[in-house]
Design a binder for these strands. Structure first.
Length: 253
DNA sequence: GAATCGCCAGCATACGTACA
DNA sequence: TGTACGTATGCTGGCGATTC
């Protein structure tokens, strides 16, 4: 088993190569350790600041609806260990139809603009959004082939549906106002729920999928798209901000 | 190349507002 | 007071771009 000169040379060369690389790796390790330390420090700082802010807001803003029982269904995967009251309040618990939850601490931007309706709902956002779009140029392939088969209502021409929705809408409206608590978590308030999730994870950027899962929705494409649309709207109204591609974060985070 | 994301378009529904 | 209209919201789906 005598090693040939070429083999010896190869070993020596490799050894030299690795030895040359060693200090670089060590230096890189030190650099990364420093980075990690810095990130950890920053993380602690942010967490401390958040804790202080939340404590501050708890003292400044009297706890809303303290007596209101929280019957919000626990979020799948994420049954919060902390008291749910804040989250539930932030989630809007849309409840009593037109009754604006007193979470006026986070009024929609339109309210500040004075464009809100009586109910406090933003008015101009959609109009401005539509105005920002060049035009509703139809996408030839898209709209033609889509035509979803009407979720709840039987397939009806749009016009008749519209007028029908007026009359039926009032009935639904009254029904909703009489029994809003049941329908609220399901049908309404997705936006508020999404905000609540973002707020709860204010220190981390979340993906639409994560938010959907946090809301107890399965991670089907449809659900994720729905959440994403909601997140996009929140970003558009500055109630959330985009932390990166596919990443959303609470503006407070 | 598959998975994921961003953007867009459109429908259904709920609700508020204006008006006859 | 009832209705028409406007708007917000939730949802679905397609397509191109980007990432893994």
């Amino acid at each position: 088993m005598t090693s040939t000169p070429t083999a010896t040379h190869s070993i020596e060369a490799t050894t030299a190569l690795l030895q040359a690389e060693l200090p670089q790796l060590e230096e890189q390790q030190i650099t990364l350790q420093k980075e990690l330390a810095a990130v950890s420090e920053r993380l602690e700082t942010v967490r401390a600041a958040l804790a202080a802010l939340s404590a501050l807001s708890a003292t400044v803003v009297p706890a809303p609806r303290a007596a209101e029982p929280v019957v919000e269904p626990p979020l799948a995967e994420e049954v919060p260990a902390e008291p749910v009251t804040d989250v539930a309040a932030a989630a809007g618990e849309p409840v009593t139809g037109s009754a604006v939850p007193d979470d006026t601490a986070e009024l929609p931007p339109a309210v500040e603009d004075g464009t809100a309706t009586k109910s406090g709902r933003p008015r101009a956002s959609r109009k401005s959004a539509a105005a920002s779009k060049p035009s509703k140029a139809k996408r030839p392939t898209a709209s033609a082939s889509r035509r979803r088969p009407a979720k709840n209502a039987p397939t009806t021409p749009a016009k008749s549906v519209k007028s029908k929705a007026k009359t039926a809408g009032t009935a639904r409206r009254s029904a909703a106002s009489t029994a809003p608590a049941e329908a609220a978590p399901e049908s309404g308030g997705l936006t508020e729920q999404v905000i609540a999730v973002l707020t709860r994870h204010a220190d981390t950027a979340l993906r639409a999928r994560d938010v959907a899962q946090a809301l107890g929705r399965d991670d089907s494409a449809g659900n994720i798209n729905t959440v994403r649309s909601t997140l996009d709207r929140l970003v558009a109204t500055s109630r959330a901000h985009r932390a990166g591609r596919g990443l959303y974060q609470s503006p407070t985070g």
